[in-house]
Amino acid sequence: MSANTFETPLVADLSAPGADPALKDVRVGIVTFPGTLDDRDAARAIELAGGTAVRLWHADDDLQRVDAVVLPGGFSYGDYLRAGAISRFAPLMARIVDAAGDDGGLPVLGICNGFQILTEAHLLPGSMIRNDHLKFVCRDQRLRVENASTAWTGDFTAGQEIVVPLKNNDGQYVCDQVTLERLEAEGRVVFRYLGRNPNGSLNDIAGVTNARGNVVGLMPHPEHAVEPGFGPDSTGSGPVAKGDGTDGLGLFTSALNALVNGSSAGSATTDGGTRA
């Protein structure tokens, strides 16, 4: 059964200038698992960035020829067992693992619970455990973009500071020493927390990528910093009024631009109907 449609119009102000009309042809799949929460937000982010959001249902077997995939945040299956541990066995995840793997190169972004699913699915190394202070934390988080050459960060510059909301219970990034050293050596730490480490993550790691750079996962929520008036009260360059922080938009425009301009990490074509 296919996913239901969004019951209210999603996008606030499309009269705003900017987006390249070619981006509209880029189809980005937003996967909904039972318990996913930020799927509407992720779809809105894709639309605001100029692309077309396509809703995907976890139990389907078809990627609907999307050009990229976002695994949004939430508490899929209530985070029961372990965050992401049940979702990663969804039929659609098998398609995504195939398409994003070495032969595919499909751009995939995992946000928060989506990041946890990607680590459970072994598309990304490491894992997330309970925050060191044992509490859920929601705050506007300053980050540094460490790697601006992944499929999702091309519109940033390396070293750029951004502010996006962070909100989670299990956000402490952990991995073994060998993996950690490899991630650092290969520049695969994509985002790093600035200021006080919010959850005890190793080396202040907020987000990582795979070797090819098409799969990125991060704990903070860029989709909550895409629309003026509904984001954080600050950006990487300082305070702004009334929730006008939109630093998160860069992740989504990065993927769309890369796909349109055919950069190295993007332009994967996938046929969800078959599997080797």
């Binding site: 606030a12 929460l37 937000d41 809105r44 509490k135 859920f136 934390v137 929601c138 909301p165 509904f230």
Partner: peptide, 24 residues
């Protein structure tokens, strides 16, 4: 309030510590 998600759904125009919570 830092233990509560105020962002989800993307329609929160205002939340604590402002006088009122505002939702689009």
């Amino acid at each position: 309030t830092d233990q509560y998600d105020r962002y989800v759904q993307g329609n929160t125009a205002m939340a604590m510590p402002d006088d009122a919570g505002v939702i689009r």
